[in-house]
């Protein structure tokens, strides 16, 4: 008996989705379940995991409060700084740049991604180190400037590393922006600043929210930049996790922190979606 067309379509859909689903299950769902199980276990005397059912790991979260605090502060601040820097760039690319060069300019934004963040951050260590910019400043008489291993260096590294992730979504939403809306706003008496805050910014908010959520979430797990540009003196949750899994090998506690981190990420996403949702109804055909 030949299959009904609908059944056949379903089978095809399943066949297409199956590999991705299997991949997600094996590499995302299973590990997460393992981490969830670990989080309620105990550390074995020599390190690692020992089966148990206890909330002790979660009760101990307070001992990494400083790491959570640092991360919760730096992640939004870093994302905000990224936003401040990214928005004008995205605006320029989407609105002001000549279409002739736009593709080239947009590519330039993405090009750094072809090199690993490790190499690029390592390069910053040299630029900010005393033989880098401080040396150049020294030549013009400004001596003993410290740049590397300061909180400023960490923020710089964060803005540098995550900028493209912020620029692209904002660029995409600004590119869809109908420039006639800006003319209409000016025509109705709005000064450029009013037009920006009344029209441009609200209509690019989906991109802003996407970029901010993306950068914030990735920053919540960041450990390389504080390690390399902060001299290891800035302690993020990511650094706490690395230490717990690779140094003290307290897997259950590390798992509990990871689970908590995931919960925070989900929360951040929900808030971001909430805000974006409010403006979702506005992405209409007349915009495109």
């Amino acid at each position: 008996m030949p299959l009904a067309p609908a059944t056949k379509r379903n089978l095809v859909t399943s066949a297409l989705v199956a590999p991705a689903a299997a991949w997600l299950f094996v590499f995302l769902v299973l590990p997460f379940i393992a981490i969830l199980v670990f989080a309620f276990g105990e550390r074995a005397p020599e390190g690692g995991y020992q089966a148990a059912f206890t909330f002790a790991q979660f009760a101990n979260l307070g001992s990494r409060a400083a790491a959570f605090r640092n991360t919760m502060m730096i992640a939004p601040v870093g994302a905000f700084l990224c936003l401040i820097v990214a928005y004008p760039v995205a605006y320029f690319l989407a609105v002001k740049a000549s279409p002739k060069y736009r593709l080239v300019l947009v590519s330039l934004v993405v090009v750094p991604f072809w090199t690993s963040l490790l190499v690029r951050t390592y390069a910053w260590m040299y630029i900010l180190g005393s033989r880098g910019l401080p040396n150049l400043l020294d030549m013009v008489g400004i001596s003993d400037v410290r740049m590397l291993n300061t909180p400023g260096a960490v923020l710089l590294g964060i803005v540098y590393g995550y900028l493209p992730l912020m620029i692209m979504p904002i660029y995409v939403s600004l590119e869809k922006l109908d420039l006639r809306l800006l003319e209409a706003s000016a025509d109705l008496g709005a000064k450029p600043l009013s037009t920006f805050f009344g029209i441009t910014l609200p209509l690019s908010l989906p991109g802003v929210m996407t970029g901010t959520a993306l950068v914030t979430i990735l920053l919540l797990g960041e450990y390389l930049i504080p390690q390399l540009l902060g001299g290891g003196k800035v302690f993020f949750i990511g650094n706490a996790l690395v230490d717990l899994f690779l140094q003290s090998r307290n897997w259950p506690f590390g798992s509990a922190i990871a689970v908590t981190l995931v919960a925070v990420v989900v929360l951040v996403l929900l808030v971001a979606m909430r805000i974006a949702w409010r403006f979702a109804g506005t992405r209409q055909v007349d915009l495109v």
Binding site: R64, A66, A67, D243, L244, S248
Partner: peptide, 9 residues
């Protein structure tokens, strides 16, 4: 291990 974590953070 915990001492180290407190020191670093």
């Amino acid at each position: 291990a915990e001492l180290m974590a407190r020191f670093k953070s």
